[in-house]
Write a protein that binds this DNA or RNA. Structure first.
Lengths: 138, 138
DNA sequence: TGAATAACCTAGTAGTCCGATAGGGTAATT
DNA sequence: AATTACCCTATCGGACTACTAGGTTATTCA
């Protein structure tokens, strides 16, 4: 299951991508439009800024804005930052690999076998889609 | 993330599929071979029996056995029983659909859009694979 | 018949994580 | 100096996961 953190983060990015101009958008605006708890959203936007997706500006007229073009933001990168591992098992994760304690030989593990396939197709879908794709911009 | 319940369940089914004969296998045998807590495994096998994957026999010489050929057991059915929803969001789940409280229009939701794609490719992979495939039998 | 065997059932529990909340501090702009 | 928004810490209820304990029922075999 996708966490609300990730879900809200993607919705916030989409909201920014759909803006007509590039002026900073205030957190309360996004929170209200997307029905997200303000304080929760604050922490999510902070993560996205630290990860290099967003820029921020303080003071009056400040807010958050996209640092890159929506078409250059891959969903896989966004989800990796907000959600962490994409794979359904640590033993098939590319970035968070961990050996199973109960598995003597990964090569023989049937669960490993199928979850690698699931991981690969998920990575393909998420890698192919950019923020522009899902925000409906061209 | 896949729960241990599902992981253990698949490993147990694989163990049964790899047996040379069709005699019932006792829970402790599976538990020891696959390094699964006995009591936990008991409850999992019970679920699999109630779902129609396994038959059971009580008393001496009893145990669990596959009711169908491994090639006729789709992984998607197994995972649906053990894990529940496959989709990463309730609003894209086929069997456990639930509307998002924060989403006024699903058609416009970018998260919905991409998670449908992830769901579809996951369903395809899991639907194509049978127990025979991942157990390495033909 | 009865003792051994093995599946079956009911509860409960420690630990963990998620989503959310609250309050305040800091920094930039007017 | 006032305003406005970014940034940090901390807490907390509820849900869920992985597992444990203990007893019950059904079958087999001497």
């Amino acid at each position: 299951m996708l966490s609300k953190k990730t879900k809200y983060g993607i919705k916030a990015l989409t909201y920014l991508a759909r803006q007509t101009d590039t002026k900073p958008v205030q957190t309360p605006n996004i929170a209200e439009s997307e029905n997200i708890s303000l304080k929760f959203l604050e922490s999510i936007l902070l993560s996205l800024r630290k990860a290099g997706f967003l820029g921020s500006k303080k003071g009056k007229g400040g807010g958050y804005y996209l640092l890159r073009e929506p078409k250059d933001i891959s969903m896989i990168d966004v989800i990796r930052v907000l959600e962490g591992p994409i794979a359904m098992l640590p033993c098939v994760s590319l970035n968070y690999y961990e050996k199973c304690s109960d598995c003597p030989d990964e090569e023989l593990c049937s669960v490993n076998k199928i979850m690698i396939q699931v991981r690969d197709c998920t990575l393909r879908v998420l890698g192919e889609n950019t923020l522009a794709d899902i925000a409906g911009k061209h």
